[in-house]
Design a protein around this nucleic acid. Structure first.
Length: 267
DNA sequence: ATGCCCGCTTACAGCGGA
């Protein structure tokens, strides 16, 4: 069972590359972020034609998330991140969270969330405050999911560089929201509740990148960092076989600035 | 210190991204 996370940076511009990647790597589940499309413009039919059911939470111009599943339709569980108290948060208009159940090859349910965590720049400021508040809400939702004691995968662009060894140069981006101590501490608190960061678990020495800036030839110079994460509940972590990054796809024409990041769970 | 590149928009310049 392969489950992938991919910040596509605009579904209209990325559709050829996205379809190509789906056909080449055949993920069972693909969590997408930065769809940048209204609900009406989502190309569900094109995914259906290659065997993927899809649900999506769109927004004009910005943000937007989706879950694709091969040979099945994901069953939507939660659209938008609730408040810390677990109520719908009507004040948050940004489409950054979608949660669904899918079935594995044995027919058992796996809970999936696609996450586009706020960037938070510039910091300090209201955008950084929003990021940290959003992370508190995510932690509360994750705790709820964990309490269900089911296999669950929280996959997405977390916009957090967890450690010094998760960036090409420890001195780079020192003032950036992605690597502030508050961002890292908030991410660490979620992991501390019992979630396993798959890539960190399998590559403890670091040096794995999922994002390379478009500017300054960052990909060619391998100036990357790791911000796309798949967090596994204990019952999912027990089934982790391997994980990786399709970094070669970052080097193709008209690529996203993120590379697809994936895990494989045993059946 | 700022922009670099890229995608988006009742677009053709400005914003957001990271």
């Amino acid at each position: 069972m392969r489950i992938a996370s991919f910040n596509i940076n605009g579904i209209k511009a990325r559709m050829p590359r996205l379809l190509e990647w789906l056909k080449e790597t055949q993920p069972d589940v693909a969590c997408l972020q930065e769809v940048k499309s209204q609900d009406d413009g989502f190309p569900a039919e094109a995914f259906k034609e290659i065997g993927y059911g899809a649900i999506w939470h769109g927004q004009k111009s910005f943000n937007g998330v989706a879950i694709l599943a091969k040979d099945q339709m994901p069953t939507e569980v939660q659209r938008g991140l609730p408040t810390v108290e677990g109520k719908p948060d009507d004040s948050d208009e940004q489409a950054r969270y979608l949660e669904a159940d899918v079935r594995d090859n044995a027919g058992n349910i796996i809970r999936i969330a696609t996450i586009y965590l706020p960037n938070g720049n510039p910091q300090p400021g209201p955008k950084f405050d929003y990021k940290l508040a959003w992370m508190k809400r995510l932690r509360a939702r994750a705790a709820h999911i964990k309490s269900l004691e089911i296999p669950a995968v929280l996959a997405g662009d977390y916009n957090v560089i967890p450690h010094e060894h998760d960036i090409y140069n420890a001195k780079a981006m020192l003032d950036d929201a992605l690597r502030q101590p508050e961002s890292r501490a908030s991410y660490k608190r979620i992991l501390g509740d019992g979630w396993c960061d798959a890539i960190e678990n399998q590559h403890p020495a670091g040096g794995v990148w999922t994002y390379w800036d478009y500017r300054s030839g960052a990909y060619q110079r391998d100036h990357g960092f790791r911000i796309d994460h798949l967090l596994l509940s204990p019952l999912a972590a027990d089934r982790l076989v391997k994980c990786g990054v399709d970094s070669e796809h970052r080097g193709r024409e008209k690529a996203s600035d993120h590379a697809p990041t994936w895990i494989e769970l045993r059946d």
